[in-house]
Write a protein that binds this DNA or RNA. Structure first.
Length: 280
DNA sequence: TACATTGTTCCGTC
DNA sequence: CGACGGAACAATGT
């Protein structure tokens, strides 16, 4: 699923593919791709969405920017906010791929970048370019990589009785971490994802602060290596330590990985490397 | 068929 | 009132 690393790699690819090129045409294949806000609901489609997208034609693409899981992309004085939802991606193709929602046709070759999104939770939001920096940051915590927190700051941000893994996914507390990297960061820090956040020791917050940055950088490096972004569920090998590894041996101690539902999401962890504190 | 997936929203409880 | 858990919801491939 697209979390911070996947959005970061998407930004870099779009910059490499399109920065400095002129937008010649816009192919709206799903009229609900443009929404009034970063909404998961196609029913929030802008009635004049296609016209708002066509207004970008003739302008030059800039390199996109990212904050948390959000992407901002300027074309002159207008631009787009974008959230990839759970299945959104940008690909370069001459012909429209399956689930293509939007095609951006540039001058020169290759001409077309497609936004594809099978689930349609993702969208683009037409905005003024000048508003993009503020909109990217609206109603979210600090970006997990651009504004990394040290142990005490993370502890303060995460003050909650919620399981620490659930709090890590709360975009209001820290922006960019989703289900996959929350489990993986807890594993790296050797902290049980089940622990109420307000029971972690200061040393554990330090470890978790480092683990978050390490995990996100690891994922970016791994995914930036491939020319086209491939998510974990798309048939390739699973590159993670615990995510979707239920019953498989822990890469450190060979104990079978456990899973459990937390706030409607599946959490994965190693019961031996990430033990519960005595008496918990 | 039922489920998994992200992020928002709402509702009941304490 | 605020924190929190749970559930619903958007859509669709498996």
């Amino acid at each position: 699923m697209p979390e911070l690393p996947e959005v970061e790699v998407t930004c870099r690819q779009l910059a490499r593919w399109t920065a400095g090129r002129t937008l010649d045409a816009v192919l709206v294949r799903d009229t609900a791709v443009a929404r009034g806000t970063l909404s998961t609901k196609p029913s929030d489609a802008l009635p004049d969405g296609p016209a708002r997208l066509e207004a970008l034609i003739g302008s030059t693409a800039e390199a996109p920017t990212r904050y948390g899981k959000r992407l901002g992309w300027s074309f002159g004085d207008r631009g787009l906010l974008c959230h990839l939802g759970m299945s959104g991606a940008f690909v370069r193709r001459s012909d429209p791929p399956e689930s293509a929602r939007l095609g951006l046709v540039f001058s020169g070759e290759p001409r077309t970048v497609w936004y594809v999104d099978g689930r349609r939770f993702g969208c683009v939001v037409p905005v003024a370019s000048a508003d993009i920096p503020a909109l990217l940051r609206a109603n979210t915590g600090p970006d997990a990589l651009l504004e990394p927190l040290d142990g005490p700051a993370l502890k303060a941000r995460m003050a909650s009785k919620k399981p620490v893994k659930v709090a890590l996914m709360d975009q209001d507390r820290i922006a960019g971490i989703g289900n996959i990297h929350a489990s993986e960061a807890c594993f790296r820090a050797r902290v049980s994802p089940r622990r109420p956040a307000n029971t972690l020791a200061d040393a554990e917050w330090e470890a978790l602060a480092r683990a978050i940055v390490d995990q996100l950088r690891f994922a970016i490096d791994a995914e930036a290596a491939s020319d086209e972004l491939v998510y974990v569920n798309n048939g390739g090998p699973n590159p993670f330590s615990v995510y979707k590894k239920t019953g498989e041996p822990c890469p450190v101690c060979r104990t079978p990985i456990a899973d459990e539902d937390h706030a409607g999401r599946t959490t994965y962890w190693c019961p031996r490397c990430q033990p519960e504190p005595p008496g918990a």
